[in-house]
């Protein structure tokens, strides 16, 4: 007992006097990150000053804008669908009915356990051959994009929602039920709003990944942003001009999405953090 006490205080001193005490760590952190930011900033300036062909931009801008609009459309549709479906997947995962929770678990295992690219191929190449006769859809690329992104991200949103529901205290359901609410009503009025707040960060994270996942659609020739890079680059051998446009396009979607998540989190603050 006395020994361990002595050890503990010795350890505490070692931490306080040692190289990695709080102050040192702080300066180290500030120093390293400043250095890093400086390096990246300089590189970026160098690229913008010497590598980007500004004369090319007016020529390629229209095709980038079309691609941007298309990506936005796919993202909005895919987001709405995958979040809605994901909520049901999450609810099914916590269902007390074995078949429901079992099927939901298999769904998640499959869509989280195989690459999105594989899923895109299944929908794009696989589904049409299953159709009896000629496949009726002409432009199957964009529907494929929406179907594959929705199915894939509904699995991730489902897991986030399941985690969010799990983090709601059992007493919440009991309190709601003891007031005479049915299971569905208690879920809707009491559990889900809290679960949603718990899941928001994870769902937001996933939806930002969904935006970037649209880049995979280049392999089925959907005219999205990476596709534009490839066409410009192969015509002009200029990598940096289209790359910069691609970066701007993605960031102009993902950064506001991050902000939106932060805003939604702040809005469901419910009178302060202290729970």
């Amino acid at each position: 007992m006395a020994d361990s006490y002595a050890d503990a205080s010795a350890d505490a001193n070692a931490v306080a006097d040692g190289f990695f005490d709080d102050q040192t760590l702080k300066y180290l952190g500030v120093g390293l990150s400043s250095l890093f930011a400086l390096g990246v900033g300089l590189l970026l300036l160098y690229i913008l000053a010497t590598q980007v062909d500004y004369g090319l931009i007016p020529t390629i801008l229209p095709q980038f804008l079309r691609a941007y609009g298309l990506v936005l459309g796919i993202v909005v549709t895919g987001s709405v669908l995958s979040v809605s479906a994901g909520i049901f997947v999450g609810l099914a995962r916590v269902s007390k009915t074995r078949i429901t929770s079992g099927l939901a678990a298999i769904y998640v295992q499959f869509f989280r356990g195989t690459p999105l690219l594989f899923q895109i191929f299944v929908v794009y190449f696989g589904i049409p051959t299953l159709w009896p006769g000629t496949f009726p859809v002409q432009d199957w690329g964009i529907p494929t994009a929406i179907i594959a992104l929705t199915l894939n991200h509904a699995a991730y949103v489902g897991e986030a929602v399941r985690g969010g529901i799990g983090a709601v205290h059992d007493g919440q359901m009991e309190a709601a039920r003891s007031l005479g609410m049915g299971y569905v009503q208690a879920m809707r009025e009491v559990v889900i709003p809290q679960a949603w707040r718990n899941a928001l960060a994870a769902v937001g994270n996933d939806q930002i990944i969904l935006v970037k996942d649209t880049s995979l659609l280049t392999v089925i020739a959907v005219p999205e942003l990476i596709q534009q890079f490839r066409s410009v680059n192969s015509a002009t051998f200029d990598p940096w001009t289209p790359l910069v446009l691609v970066a701007i396009a993605y960031l102009s979607i993902t950064i506001p999405m991050g902000r939106l998540v932060e805003y939604l989190e702040e809005r469901s603050d419910w009178g302060g953090e202290s729970q």
Partner: peptide
């Protein structure tokens, strides 16, 4: 009424 209150925090 429960020991842990179980008020709805939202």
């Amino acid at each position: 009424v429960f020991q842990s209150f179980n008020l709805f925090p939202h």
